[in-house]
């Protein structure tokens, strides 16, 4: 019971820290809304042959739901964790009585809450701004979002261990993320037979977009339960979690200039040995 309260308090402070940073809040939450409004207003009324003659906006609403979850759980989380590690925040947490799992849970819950806010905003704007009906299989959508959030959170944890320093955190992560979004067809629907779709079907981003779409929009001959996409995302999540567990470091990777870190090998060894 005490630990539940402890974790809940930690989530509260994570939220406080997130919303008190206006730039962070706008870049994370605002983007899904701004992108939806931009593409929705410019191209939303067009019909797409790839969608069997459907309106593009009915593709963009699920697309930006998927985007919101991935942005919060993967992109922001990765950058956030790298910054915290390099600032020494993770080390301080490690040396406090707050259990590691409570910190992880709070950080993940924080990403989940931010995702949920975006999902609701995008759904409401889609419904009342563009007349896109609410998702036809709400239960499937919730399952997709939960599995997707878990997988992309694991990917965020794993990717953060691959980023060497604070300066590289935002550029590397964001470039990778936006290239993946492009290849996976966030901005325009991909025909399933196209080379791009085949290539991006090996990556998790495409599956998240397709899964949210399938759960949201009724299509002839397509189940609203995208099992295949769920399995691929979950597999990526498991691999990423294994990378995170193996490479996780509480200590900054980069020695501070002028402040004597021991030997050049200290960081690498400490990474594995630090408990």
């Amino acid at each position: 019971m005490g630990d539940v309260v402890l974790t809940a308090r930690q989530v509260y402070y994570e939220q406080l820290n997130f919303w008190l940073n206006p730039i962070g809040a706008v870049f994370t939450v605002g983007f899904s809304v701004i992108f939806l409004l931009l593409v929705g207003s410019s191209a939303g009324h067009q019909r797409s042959s790839t969608l069997g003659g459907g309106l593009l906006i009915s593709y963009y609403v699920p697309g930006f739901i998927a985007y919101g979850v991935m942005a919060a759980c993967f992109n922001s989380l990765t950058i956030n964790l790298v910054v915290r590690r390099e600032m020494g925040l993770l080390k301080r947490v490690r040396l406090s009585p707050l259990p590691a799992w409570a910190m992880m849970a709070a950080v993940s819950a924080n990403a989940l809450i931010i995702s949920a806010v975006q999902v609701v905003l995008v759904l409401l704007i889609g419904r009342f701004g563009y007349g896109v009906p609410f998702p036809h299989n709400l239960l499937a959508l919730v399952v997709v979002l939960v599995v997707g959030a878990a997988s992309f959170t694991a990917l965020g944890l794993g990717t953060s261990t691959l980023v060497p320093n604070q300066e590289a955190g935002a550029p590397i992560t964001s470039v990778v993320f936006f290239v993946l979004l492009f290849l996976s067809g966030l901005w325009f629907p991909l025909a399933a037979s196209s080379g791009l779709a085949k290539f991006s079907s090996y990556l998790p981003v495409r599956h998240m977009i397709v899964a949210v779409y399938d759960a949201s929009i009724t299509q002839k001959g397509v189940s609203s339960w995208p099992w295949h996409d769920l399995v691929v995302m979950a597999a990526w999540g498991v691999v990423a979690a294994a990378v995170a567990a193996r490479r996780w470091s509480w200590a900054p990777r980069q020695a501070r200039s002028g402040r004597g870190r021991m030997l050049s090998g200290a960081g690498a060894a400490g990474r594995r040995r630090s408990q």
Binding site: G88, L89, K91, L95
Partner: peptide
């Protein structure tokens, strides 16, 4: 620690109150 390690957007009191709750 040698490095300052506090979330920049919290207030001084919020940071202290949060950590106090760990003990």
């Amino acid at each position: 620690l040698q490095e300052l390690a506090v979330e920049p957007f919290l207030s001084v009191r919020q940071a202290l109150t949060r950590n106090a709750g760990y003990y």
